[in-house]
Design a protein around this nucleic acid. Sequence first.
DNA 1: CGCTCTCTTGATAGACTTCAATGTTAGTGG
DNA 2: CCACTAACATTGAAGTCTATCAAGAGAGCG
Lengths: 213, 213
Amino acid sequence: MQVASMPDWLDIVAEGDRPSRSVLILDGFVCRYRLLAEGRRQIVSFHTPGDIPDLQSLHLKTMDHNVGTLVPSKLGFISHADMHALIRRFPGLGSLLWRDTLIDAAIFREWMVGLGRRNAHQRIAHLMCELLLRFRGVGLAREYQAPLPLTQMELADALGLTVVHVNRVLRSLREDGMLRVDRTSVSILDWERTTDLAEFNPLYLHQDKDAPT
Amino acid sequence: MQVASMPDWLDIVAEGDRPSRSVLILDGFVCRYRLLAEGRRQIVSFHTPGDIPDLQSLHLKTMDHNVGTLVPSKLGFISHADMHALIRRFPGLGSLLWRDTLIDAAIFREWMVGLGRRNAHQRIAHLMCELLLRFRGVGLAREYQAPLPLTQMELADALGLTVVHVNRVLRSLREDGMLRVDRTSVSILDWERTTDLAEFNPLYLHQDKDAPT
DNA sequence: CGCTCTCTTGATAGACTTCAATGTTAGTGG
DNA sequence: CCACTAACATTGAAGTCTATCAAGAGAGCG
């Protein structure tokens, strides 16, 4: 495995690429996104250390979206050939990775529910709850505070909103005493009211390791 | 494999279930969806014959969404135990199914882009293009006409809109000569203008079987 | 110090929703 | 064959959420 340090704002893989290796995040924060006409962008996922954000390229040769860093990050690269060999040798690893892509998909679905059926307040609250639990899962968050190295524009592009509106809603949530977001972190001040507002149910994160039947 | 015929409007699997088998669609039309408070619903995917809509239950024990039929359908049930045995015996089958879940996820991402960044006209046009190509892929569509056994309310719940607005936009697209939707099918009258409007790029469907590198 | 990027706020506009009512279609039973 | 019903489709009017346009304030950086 090769290791490389990336600056913020660098594309790791772009739409149309046919990668021969996958990326393991060792440190940092990465997102996947698609671009449309007139500069519109939709961020479709965030990824934390331990994730393999472009695992799909192992079975789908052509990338249908972009993967980029959001902060300076340390990345490991594993060739698809090596991964296939490892999976052949340890079939359990294959199942684990497959399971990972399924959790990815579960998060996509939950974001779809938000984009389609939650208003701006709920979407923001929901995303913050999700990120808090995910960062906790990798030991990077305190009880109710998680790193959040995102600009409001990046939040907007993940939430399907404009920067202006994100800014206003963040202020309103802050003034309500629910949660507080700054350039580096998020604090959830009232977990119960926040999860209520967001209709947040963490089941979709499948963090319990899903004790086998 | 057991086979069963289902009426329209029946839930096959519900949120919270821990299924011990997966469903193969032999005939019909199936969707996955989540429910929120006050009767809000988001449909997150549609599935055509040949799909295994709850394949994820093979590796994620607890369902985080519902699966239901949209028309009278014929379904096959395969126990997870049998599937695991088959995959152990034919590792290539595992890769194929994994690949299927990755295409699923790619479609989720594209829907997210629509829900987040496309307006109602574009969303409808995009969904119709997608369904046409997918139905063609399983030999169920003619050149520019595909079955579409959906009410406007079901469309609305998939598109993150209200029935009223879907109705108005459908009329506008019809009057524009782009496409025509009725209770049973969709006809795309002007493919070029429709794909242009929707910014539709079929790459995400990975229908080319992704000729290996 | 000037530049750029981000955050913030106000005013205005537009897309989509909500509420309400009517028209249409298909199925059921007498 | 026709009344009757329920689900679905359609249309209008009014309201709300979010976008757009515009401008100023802070913060980081060479």
